[in-house]
Write a protein that binds this DNA or RNA. Structure first.
Lengths: 128, 128
DNA sequence: ATGTGTGCAAACAGTTTGCAAGCTT
DNA sequence: AAGCTTGCAAACTGTTTGCACACAT
């Protein structure tokens, strides 16, 4: 299994070329430029297969469809631009998230979402 | 508009009686005890109407359906039990979330998710 | 030649909407 | 009595699956 088709190659390239988590529609749009007639079902199937191979990491965000990126990025902090809706990885980590939990709850992990305006959208709004 | 029906009364009661954000299926299950034959469409319509009235607050969580609770709770920090999947509000706030954003990004808000085991599930697993 | 991968369309799950009947005002 | 509200079912959106054909091996 895992044959080297042009669809998978295109999706892998798109994922490698973009240094931010991408949603299924984003993956379809970006990979469709490279492979004409690419179907959304293939995008979902390829995502699933890459996830199972450990070649892709899923990023779940509040109220958003899941995004996907290369594994090994900082997975705890993300930033979403409220203007263009794009999501970016953010560095850093909290030292003691467990101190923020309700009394007597045991904390094993955490994730932090930051919201605001990304560099590009700041530049665009300043120009107007 | 906004008539005082038994369905809305039941949903309001359920929301007031539970001090944690509830999902639409949770609302249906809990309110169905009070109102027989309650339909899921009514749950969704009532949620929408209460949101518009400002009588309800929506809580979006990563990879989860939205939850709803009374407004005015601490909205930035939440805790989800990885065993029972229930969600709880958590107190506290970060002092300088903007320092965690990528360079040149402007931060206006943030949300923190904590994951682990809730008090009840800790007790249950200790008993076994 | 074998059998996985693809595109299309149907199937699904969660949410929204149209409609006729019921209930609140 | 008027018209908002409800339950049911159909419509919709995002995701998954079945199927016949294409293509990588």
């Amino acid at each position: 299994m895992n044959r080297n088709t042009k669809q998978r190659r295109a999706l892998r390239e798109v994922i490698e070329e973009n240094d931010r988590p991408l949603s299924p529609p984003e993956l379809l749009a970006l990979a469709s430029v490279k492979v004409d007639g690419l179907g959304i079902a293939t995008v979902y199937r390829t995502i699933k297969s890459l996830l199972e191979d450990g070649a892709l990491a899923q990023v779940d965000l509040p109220g958003e469809p899941p995004r996907y990126e290369l594994p090994g990025k900082s997975m705890n902090h993300h930033f979403q631009c409220e203007t263009c809706r794009k999501v970016f990885d953010a560095p850093g980590h909290l030292d003691a998230p467990q101190t923020l939990a309700p009394f007597e709850f045991s904390v094993s992990d955490y994730s932090l979402m930051l919201y605001g305006t990304c560099k590009d959208c700041l530049a665009t709004s300043a120009t107007k």
